[in-house]
């Protein structure tokens, strides 16, 4: 590959709007604090955390992980399509991503319904306080991400973006990948590591 081509491919800023990346950084820092708080609080309650972690549905959690990483891959395909000016394909990939996001919400919602039916809430114990707070905070981000993807899918389908002008699509995609990234840490930390 020639030096000129390499130079042309190296950018100084990430894809999408810089403001969205500043928001992503802020969100990631908040989640980092949550993860650290979980880890350091667990130090004083190892037996309790291990006991109640075993009550969680790991199969639902792995299904949700697969749903989110697949949604992220679909969003990557949507960005690739719009970069080539193919709005129809891009919209189709975005709707597929929305489908995976809704699947996540459906599975996670089922888990919450199960917990509620057993009388489990934030004050049940320290483990559940962290588990419910962390996962629900992330759940809210998935809802926002799905709404963003729906808006983008509609606008892309209407032909409002092109190969030259699609920063909104890249910004929305970056936000969605952040939601995926956070879950990739949350899943092993809360459901598996003991």
């Amino acid at each position: 590959m020639s030096d000129k081509l390499v130079a042309a491919q190296v950018r100084h800023y990430p894809p999408g709007d810089l403001a969205v990346w500043i928001l992503i950084m802020a969100e990631l820092l908040v989640f980092a604090l949550f993860f650290a708080a979980y880890g350091f609080t667990r130090m004083g309650h190892v037996a309790l955390f291990n006991q109640y972690q075993a009550t969680l549905d790991r199969t639902a959690a792995v299904a949700n992980t697969l749903a989110l990483i697949t949604a992220s891959y679909f969003v990557v395909r949507a960005v690739a399509a719009i970069r080539e000016g193919n709005s129809r394909h891009s919209a189709r990939w975005l709707w597929a991503g929305v489908g995976m996001g809704v699947l996540f919400l459906f599975i996670k919602g089922g888990e919450y319904a199960e917990h509620l039916s057993h009388g489990i809430n934030l004050s049940t114990n320290t483990f559940y306080m962290f588990y419910l707070s962390l996962t629900f905070f992330h759940f809210m981000h998935v809802i926002v991400g799905v709404i963003v993807l729906v808006i983008l899918a509609v606008k892309v389908g209407q032909g409002r973006y092109s190969a030259a002008e699609h920063a909104d699509v890249e910004s929305g995609a970056s936000y969605w990948h952040m939601v995926d990234l956070v879950w990739l840490i949350l899943f092993p930390l809360v459901y598996v590591m003991h």
């Binding site: 491919q9 100084h12 990430p14 590591m193």
Partner: peptide
């Protein structure tokens, strides 16, 4: 790859790596 940071230079190239280093170290 998904966020496309492999093709970015400077601070933004490492923003996710630094976050992962922070979270990984603390946990």
């Amino acid at each position: 790859w998904f966020m496309g940071l492999h093709g970015v230079s400077g601070f933004w190239r490492w923003v996710v790596s630094l976050w992962l280093l922070l979270v990984g170290s603390l946990v």
